[in-house]
Design a protein around this nucleic acid. Structure first.
Lengths: 344, 344
DNA sequence: CTGAAAGCGCTTACAG
DNA sequence: CTGAAAGCGCTTACAG
């Protein structure tokens, strides 16, 4: 392996002159020397050892992406939302000259160990699963961090999220506008007994839309389940079996919406003729299914880009112009919602 | 930040005694000292600085995952195949005590820089896009590497792939068994003018299956296209517009199969009644589409696991029991292929 | 069982 | 414009 020392020896200069050239401190070195050194660097394809650099420099140039270890769902990247988000984060991190280390972790001590181990410059938490742990995370780790979709009450944490309330509201509003009054809400309101704020917000939007139209809120129409395809299928079947007296479903994940459509189909019912379904996220599969899923879209690209930019701003400037970004959501009309009048 | 030095000072021992305790060289330290030191380590939640360690130890514990920068498709992780594969790799890397750095790169010098920058212990190349560059990659970088789906002719590189030939063969065989004799082959046989061996192998399987049934191979039934949803839609339309005289399509990617189904639908034709389609990969969306896509499945979990295990075996033992693993593929019968007799 | 010394490949003040 | 020295936080022989 070629080191600074080798380059310096061959150029007949000191190590730190080479270091200055590499770091672009060209004002400190004569043109002649610069050229000579650059030639040698090229000749050997020299690149600096960044583990050595991060030992002396204040910065490691490593950004950590933290994802939870899920018991039931051991490969989080199967989730198209996560993988799309991650892919963009990767791109933006690279374009800014940083390096990306990913790791799934199970608790705060895992997180702290990881961040300290590599002396990371910053970290992005992809999911809000750690919201109740943020206090201890912040206490143990003094580095720039961005939390996605967090509703943590802790002040001045940096977070990028979406307008979940509005998402719940416009989805429900849309169903009501199509004549529906008996609307099921299906999503993971709680996880391991603790509420998931993001989903609760969507639920609030749902409730307010009902209220506005003088539709009484009915607790029994809230189905608190983990959102996946299989659960969706079962739910779709249950609905068709009249276990719920509803004409429409708002579900907090496209994948579950796709499952509901399938479950209904398995029981001989057709969406949107017999049942309307609206999803959330606007992931690619929502276009593949028949009928194409009407859904609430969030701008994942923007979310990922802003998260990284915010983090890097904080890393490099020590402060951030705006520590709380809430992105807009919008309704994407497709084919899975029907007019209730057509139902009868 | 707490360092070895701090721990040593508080324990009243030398730095290297603490180092021995941390590294589990317990034979070299007295029980008393071990206990004392471990208590202090716990007290401060000390974890070693791995950038420092990797400077002295022969090992950095970093494994690189290399993905290509695609011009047209800037977020590779939108591809469910890549993201599922990646997620499993991440898990297995972590479970083995290594750390994962991902990066998209555009050429050999990018790759070499990355690997040298971090003094990586090993690297996994997720896609065979670099096959024609492997020689120069190997020349510039002397570290353990695993190439997925490579058909490089270079001996003794470590690779994990699937039986592409068989995949092409059984897919085509299945269509023939269902009475089809005019079968389109759609996939990216070439990229930027150079053949993609993986797809060529599937094409060979296709040809041999035809040959076996005395069906003449027809060059004009090979559609050499990038496999994505939009291309699939256009292809589906073209087929229904009689631009190709076929009754079935074998496509090398599920996503394109899903597009073909959609394209046919847009032109008023129904799969499998009017056209049969078979895909490749058995990704989740193949179940979401209507009709559910019949496809060739590969075991992504096994692929990812073997790739990491092989890499780590090589890193830790300096050699590998088997440097070329080819995984089996199988047909997954669903609903997108019909009997030709039913077509008329 | 314990430790002093050297060194990994860099950068950061500082002196000239 | 150039360089000698110290140090980042570890590990590796080696000596006792």
């Amino acid at each position: 392996m070629v080191t600074l020392k080798d380059i310096a020896a061959e150029a007949g200069v000191s190590i730190m002159t080479v270091s200055n050239v590499i770091n672009g401190n060209h004002s400190k070195v004569s043109k002649k020397t610069i050229e000579k050194i650059e030639k040698i660097i090229q000749k050997y394809n020299y690149v600096p050892n960044l583990t050595a650099r991060s030992l002396t420099a204040k910065s490691s140039k490593i950004i950590g992406v933290i994802v939870p270890i899920k018991g039931s769902f051991n490969n989080l990247f199967k989730d198209p939302y996560i993988s799309e988000l991650f892919g963009i984060i990767q791109n933006v991190v690279r374009e800014n000259g940083y390096y990306l280390m990913v790791r799934s972790v199970k608790d705060v001590s895992d997180i702290s160990a990881l961040l300290k181990n590599w002396n990371m410059d910053g970290a992005i938490f992809l999911m809000p699963d750690y919201d109740n742990l943020i206090y201890s995370i912040l206490k143990e780790n003094k580095l720039p961090m961005v939390f996605l979709d967090s509703y943590s009450k802790i002040d001045n944490i940096i977070s990028v999220g979406i307008n979940d309330y509005k998402g719940g509201y416009i989805a429900t509003r849309y169903l009501i506008n199509n004549g529906h009054r008996k609307i099921l809400f299906a999503g993971p309101c709680h996880k391991d007994g603790v509420p998931i704020p993001q989903i609760i917000k969507r639920l609030e939007g749902y409730k307010d839309a009902l209220l506005e139209s003088n539709i009484e809120f009915n607790e029994s129409l809230i189905v608190d389940v983990e959102p996946n395809y299989e659960v969706g299928i079962n739910l779709g079947r249950s609905i068709c079996n009249k276990e719920f007296d509803v004409t429409a479903v708002f579900t907090t994940a496209d994948i579950m919406g796709i499952g509901i459509i399938e479950g209904a189909k398995l029981n001989g019912k057709i969406v949107p003729n017999d049942l309307s379904v609206i999803g959330f996220d606007n992931l690619l599969p929502s276009v593949y299914v028949t009928p194409k899923l009407t859904t609430i879209s969030q701008d994942i690209e923007s979310k990922a880009t802003k998260a990284v930019n915010l983090l890097i701003e904080y890393i490099e400037k020590g402060s951030v112009s705006n520590n709380k970004i809430t992105l807009d959501v919008e309704l994407v009309e497709r084919q899975s919602v029907g007019q209730l009048s057509n139902l009868k």
